[in-house]
Design a protein around this nucleic acid. Structure first.
Length: 950
RNA sequence: GGGCGAGUGGCGGAAUUGGCAUACGCGUUAGUUUUAGGAACUAAUGUCGCAAGACUUGGGGGUUCGAGUCCCCCCUCGCCCACCA
């Protein structure tokens, strides 16, 4: 009996696979193509830890399955090797980053190769290779030529420790993402990429790709598209000739009648022009200075109170109501979003509400909430018209006790309200309330105290009148003076009963959906309503649906529809050494000139010292020999750009280079691009699903517009994997000393065991804690599979065929959903069954090996070979399952009595419901449980259960 | 503060989407084997109970013949965003 020796066997097959080029993708194949992609790693100095291979193994399983399914598969890998950690290491040790990178990639490569992942290593790329970054530079120049790469002076986020400008997305809670130092503001010229030009397409084209929903959502939130309107507010002041206008962006034009003041961002450019008209300019300018100094961190501190200054002696005109409203400046309005100015609607916006409360500015409700069908328990009849009704709802206090009058309806059971009723023509609301109170409760001496602030609408179907009603309610407060009472009419008496409730009980008791808001209003805890509803206090728009009224209101105030984005242009320069030099030459005469294509790549020169300069320029600025050059246009003296590109650059297009990695004429041959792109399935980490994905979609769309790539989107499908955490669920890190090196696991248990374990430990898309203790389980499974070879006999085993086919189906489907853990569990069950069985047929065993092969390729190849197969199992096929063989002959049916399982019976596939019923009733255990009652109802769910209700 | 997601044995986790809760694996216990230890194999293993049986998916309510799964409220944890009008 041959022992399972993972060390010998894994090495042997890895060598053979490499020699036979089994995983090489063919550019000119008649087979359908499949392009599977993982995020190429950053080769850090720490080497691989067990978390790295998880996504590689996952996509390896997909890729191997596709090969067996007859696809020509491209599954490549490379190195995203530019970046800060290597540079910092170089600074510290005085080593050349090129050498550091070489050492690190060598280690990573050896480690990854030991896992038997079916990468096509002949297409390996490296972003730091001049032959690669030549094309990164070339693409940059295309952006430059189209005006999408430009230089702009701007306040940047500056990290004083790393001496580097940071993109907004690299600032986490006001601190540098890498080192945690608090971020400062610094003015600097920066290269920018105009990603905002593509914002709308980046947003809308998400409809056409198959990304996980949360990934799409992340992209959408980051782009932050919102549809609204731009509206002009006139500014008036003492001087009659003065005509200035403030543009305001809002998504809620429908609330414009409630705009009771206007706010400008402290940086708003109009302030310069208004300066002379503002009587308290001193105070205002002081506020502006203080606000400018405050870092982003200070401006966003939690619970920070909003501050602002009113600009005295000027006013704005609300274009809807014609009212004069005050103008303020306040830090809570951002200069960089929308127009840098807002119309404040404190009744319907939380921030405005807080501000208005603090500075005592008027609050006016203009949208009333609507609740449907809650009052009389009847669903409204869709599509039928509404009858409008004005109504009151009365909160009435007891004459002695601290209790309030409520009623419970008899004819619509379970409906509980305050006293309410419709206003008769000509009647004033106070009279209506008093009349309703008397009619419904009999009490006569109700004294009107006040009307609550606000309206709400209730829509319901009126059963007696057989019509949809829309009632607009006002809330009135009364107190009884005494308990004097009249007889109530029979009709009323039949409809409801009167109940007194204590304040604490009210909200629980009532069934109307606006109850909480009403009760808060009554207790004068003002509530703001930010939803949509029906308009009130809005002139001719009163009663309209606020969502539907938007268009008309924009017209009415002569505004225009406008879409804005949160997305900002991408700050593209870094003042560092270890990145792609930006291929631009600055000439005194000609300005900024592209490096001619023939001179690409602009290679990084060797330097003695990698330290950034104190002025914030990149270390490249110190190398006069490299910096000083001649202008390609006029031949005069010129200087090279010394900024380099960010990490994101090389990874924005790398998947295109795999298609044709050695081409020195173009970044990739168009024929190859046409065959291979788009990427069919891209899996990567959650941390890259917004930025990297967005940036690379942007580059791809740009290249598509230049007709350089054949598709509009780079990736058809995107999924993400969860992290592998250290034992105990904490992050694996060198400092915690809990890093597991895959080398050790491969040595002790073998690559197949490691692969299986990483896929078995938990759901692929969730983080899981590593547990070395648990690995033994999958190792036992593999050894079981090894032992099975000694049970092979010629004889067929019918029952085995059924289980096998079920497993093939399960594994096939689970792989597509990345449910690798349950696929493995199904194969474990199959292996146990096979071991229990008297014999296994060669054919069944081979099919098992085929479905196991993507998970544990080495052992399976060995067993396949031992069965006498001459060709690799990789060149065989993915087995189909036979649907007929999966059907059970005897079906187990659960018999329940009142929902509790009392017995199980077996039926044949062809038995009907009646026969099953009889069988169930004959069962001894069931007979016993039926003794206490008579069967009232039978519920039969096909092939599953029967429930007898007694 | 907002958005998204999660909460199931001692542990990692299953549950064809409303139909036998706890598959599979680890661990634990017993047995076989072994000089011993380990490994391997076999069996048992949610809780209470001698048992029949009862109870059990963070807590509370609801819908249903039937709820881990659907609805409402609350608690806890994780991730992302954070004054975006």
């Amino acid at each position: 009996m041959k022992e399972y020796d993972h060390k010998k066997l894994e090495k042997k097959w890895q060598t053979i696979w490499e020699k036979k080029r089994i995983y090489h993708a063919q550019n000119n194949s008649q087979k359908p193509k499949y392009y599977s992609l993982i995020e190429f790693p950053y080769p850090s100095g720490e080497g691989l830890h067990v978390g790295h291979p998880r996504p590689y193994i996952g996509m390896d399983i997909i890729s191997r399955k596709r090969r067996l399914q007859g696809f020509n598969v491209l599954y490549p890998i490379g190195w995203d090797a530019f970046g800060l950690p290597t540079e910092n290491y170089a600074i510290k040790t005085g080593q050349d980053p090129r050498m550091v990178t070489k050492e690190n990639t060598d280690t990573f490569k050896r480690q990854i190769k030991s896992l038997g992942i079916s990468f096509d290593w002949s297409r390996e790329i490296n972003t730091t290779d001049p032959e690669y970054y030549k094309w990164t530079q070339w693409i940059f120049l295309q952006f430059f030529k189209k005006g999408l790469a430009y230089k702009a002076k701007m306040m940047i986020n500056w990290c004083s420790k790393d001496k580097i400008g940071l993109a907004n997305e690299e600032v986490v809670n006001g601190c540098c993402e890498r080192c945690g130092t608090s971020v400062e503001k610094k003015e600097k010229e920066q290269w920018m990429l105009a990603i905002t030009k593509y914002a709308d397409r980046l947003y809308k084209d998400l409809d056409d790709v198959n990304y996980l929903p949360q990934i799409k959502l992340g992209q959408r939130n980051w782009i932050g598209r919102s549809e609204g309107a731009e509206i002009d507010f006139k500014i008036i002041c003492g001087s009659p000739t003065f005509t200035e206008v403030v543009k305001v962006f809002t998504t809620r034009v429908d609330t414009i009648f409630g705009a009771t003041y206007l706010v400008l961002a402290p940086e708003h450019e109009l302030l310069e022009k208004l300066k002379s008209q503002i009587s308290n300019w001193d105070e205002a300018s002081r506020y502006i200075v203080v606000n400018k100094k405050a870092s982003d961190l200070e401006r966003t501190v939690e619970n920070k109170e909003k501050t602002g200054v009113e600009l005295k002696s000027i006013k704005a005109i609300n274009p809807a109501s014609g009212e004069e409203i005050p103008v303020w400046i306040a830090g809570y309005v951002l200069a960089t979003y929308g127009t840098g100015a807002i119309m404040a609607v404190p009744a319907h916006d939380k921030r405005d509400f807080e501000f208005a409360k603090k500075y005592n500015l008027p609050i006016r409700q203009v949208v009333a909430p609507v609740s449907r069908s809650s009052i009389l328990g009847q669903m409204i009849h869709e599509g039928e018209p509404f009858r409008n009704r004005e109504a009151v709802m009365c909160i009435v206090k007891h004459w002695k006790k601290n209790e309030y009058l409520c009623q419970e309806w008899k004819d619509f059971s379970g409906v509980r309200t305050f006293i309410s009723g419709g206003i008769e023509p000509g009647e004033d609301i106070v009279t209506t309330g008093r009349r309703e109170i008397k009619e419904e409760s009999g009490y006569t001496h109700a004294k009107f105290i006040k009307q609550l602030n606000g309206f709400s609408y209730i829509e319901f179907y009126h059963q007696r009148k057989k019509v949809n009603m829309r009632a607009r309610f006002r809330y009135l407060y009364y107190e009884f003076e005494d308990g004097e009472k009249e007889e109530i009419s029979k009709v009323e008496n039949n409809q409801h009963i009167i109940v007194w409730k204590k304040p604490k009980e009210i909200v629980d008791f009532l069934t109307i959906s606006e109850k909480e808001r009403i009760w808060k209003l009554f207790n004068s805890q003002e509530e703001i309503f930010t939803g949509i509803g029906y308009m009130v206090n809005s002139g001719k728009f009163d009663g309209m649906d606020s969502e539907k009224a938007k268009k008309e209101i924009i017209e009415f105030v002569k505004g225009k529809e406008k879409t804005t984005f949160k997305l900002r242009d991408w700050i593209f320069s870094r003042q560092r050494y270890w990145g792609e030099p930006i291929p631009i030459i600055h000439c005194q005469k000609c300005g900024m000139v592209s490096v001619p294509e023939k001179d690409l790549p602009v290679e990084l020169p060797k330097v003695k010292n990698y330290q950034p300069t104190d002025s914030g320029e990149s270390p490249l600025a110190n190398i006069a020999k490299w910096v000083n050059t001649t202008c390609p246009k006029c031949g005069g003296k010129a200087k090279r750009e010394t900024d380099t590109m960010p990490n994101w650059a090389g990874s924005s297009w790398y998947y295109l280079r795999y298609v044709d990695p050695t081409n020195d004429k173009v970044f990739a041959d168009h024929k190859n691009l046409k065959y291979w792109t788009p990427v069919d399935w891209y899996n990567g980490g959650n941390e890259h699903t917004t930025l990297h994905l967005l940036y690379s979609r942007f580059w791809h769309k740009f290249l598509f517009d230049l007709k350089l790539v054949p598709t509009n989107e780079p990736y058809m499908k995107r999924t993400s994997h969860g992290m592998i955490l250290g034992e105990g669920g904490v992050k694996m890190s060198k400092s915690l000393g809990n890093v597991i090196n895959p080398d050790d696991i491969v040595k002790i248990y073998g690559a197949d065991t490691l692969r299986l374990y990483e896929m078995f430990m938990g759901p692929f898309n969730q983080s899981v804690a590593w547990s070395t203790e648990s690995i033994i389980g999958v190792r036992r499974f593999i050894e079981k599979v090894w032992r099975l070879q000694f049970k092979i006999k010629k004889k067929d085993n019918k029952e085995m065929k059924r289980i096998l086919n079920k497993t093939i189906k399960k594994v096939s489907e689970d792989i597509e959903k990345m449910h690798f853990n349950t696929a493995i569990s199904a194969m474990m069950i199959l292996a146990t069954e096979m071991e229990k069985a008297e014999n296994i047929s060669t054919n069944d065993y081979q099919k098992f090996l085929q479905i196991l092969s993507p998970f544990a390729p080495h052992i399976v190849e060995e067993l396949w070979n031992m069965l006498g197969e001459k060709k690799s199992i990789n060149l065989s096929n993915w087995p189909e399952w036979d649907a007929n063989l999966i059907i059970d002959e005897k079906i187990k049916i659960v018999v329940q009595v009142n929902g509790k399982v009392r017995a199980t019976i077996f039926i044949n596939a062809n038995e009907g419901e009646e026969e099953i019923k009889i069988k169930a009733l004959e069962n001894q255990s069931i007979v016993k449980h039926l003794a206490s009652g008579v069967p009232k109802k039978f519920i039969y769910i096909k092939n599953r259960l029967i429930n007898i209700v007694i």
